[in-house]
Amino acid sequence: MYRSIIAIAALGIVSLATTQAEAALNVFTCEPEWAALTTVLGGSDVDVFTATTALQDPHQIQARPALISRLRNADIVVCTGAELEVGWMPVLLRQSSNAKVQPGAPGYFEASQQVTLLEKPERLDRADGDVHPAGNPHLQTDPRNMRIIAQALAKRLAVVDPAHADGYAQREQAFDARLGQTIEQLQTQAASLKGVKFVSYHKSWIYLANWLGMIEAANIEPKPGVPPGSAYIADLLGRIPALQARMIVYAAYEDPKPSQFIADKSGLPAVMLPFTVGGTDGAKDIISFYEDTVKRLLAAAGGKGG
């Protein structure tokens, strides 16, 4: 009796489930920037799924059932790596039963493996907060990194999907030219940001700062991943005049309240940056993501006598 109940239930669920079998390469991306990049490089040859949105903290993602099934059907995984996804990707990969996309396979691509990571911690101790042993993983905020990763990803897509290798290579060249131009333009525009100091909520902007020559003077989080207490905020407010910071920077997915509070008390402008594609209305794709970021920084710096 029980066996027949199970069989009937199982059949019902199967008929509910939608079966999909596209010819395009199934790409599972961990963050929206990699979805945008893969879409640019893959065009109609790829079918891209994003595990997270720009409004979600990529450190804290649930290992949702939908992610397991998307991984199971993926031909290639494109993630940041450097332990950004350590809380959820290993579980998903294990449950996905998909040998094609396990670490070490050609179908597993980590952006952090392609570029030099900054802020590699000198000591590893969880007393220091949410530390990433390989270095700071928020590498997408520097377009020069994006250029290198685009090249590596196009090659990888060609390895996984040799039939469309020419397409990947051509689109990569076109994208590289456009991004190269954008970088030059933005660098000229952002020349006045050089040396500008800022306070940020999380250590998310080191690569952006590096690119534009800006200086991260302090973080609102006392340690990465640790929310500030009132005593720490008071202490930070006391230090801000001496830091000579010109703005407070926070990401679209972060709670704006602590940053706004510090901004109100210190009189500095608080600027929300997209952090990834889709974080703001202006950040529609990779190129406009960088354009919007620079625009917002310039506006904040200009508003405060810059």
Partner: peptide
């Protein structure tokens, strides 16, 4: 023994 169906909706037996 588990089998994960090749669907976009998660379905596992």
């Amino acid at each position: 023994m588990r089998w994960l169906a090749p669907t976009n909706r998660f379905l596992e037996f």
